[in-house]
């Protein structure tokens, strides 16, 4: 899973497999962060809440 783990090997299989995994994790992590930070920003700007739409 990480290069420091016993089974890690510097080969194509590991690059592709774990590359894909970290890539997906990165998308999810960044995507969620974007949503959260934008939500904080929007909230501070006074948007949303209750039933104003």
């Amino acid at each position: 899973m990480f290069p420091n783990v016993w089974e890690w090997a510097w080969d194509a299989g590991h690059y592709i497999f774990f590359g894909g995994m970290w890539y997906v994790l990165a998308i999810l992590f960044l995507g969620m962060n974007w949503c959260v930070f934008k939500a904080i920003k929007d909230t501070k700007a006074g948007k949303g809440g209750g039933h104003d739409h």
Partner: peptide
């Protein structure tokens, strides 16, 4: 009704 949650939900819809 919580503004943050509302905005979060909204933003998540966006992406």
């Amino acid at each position: 009704q919580v503004p943050f949650f509302h905005n979060l939900g909204h933003n998540m819809h966006e992406v």
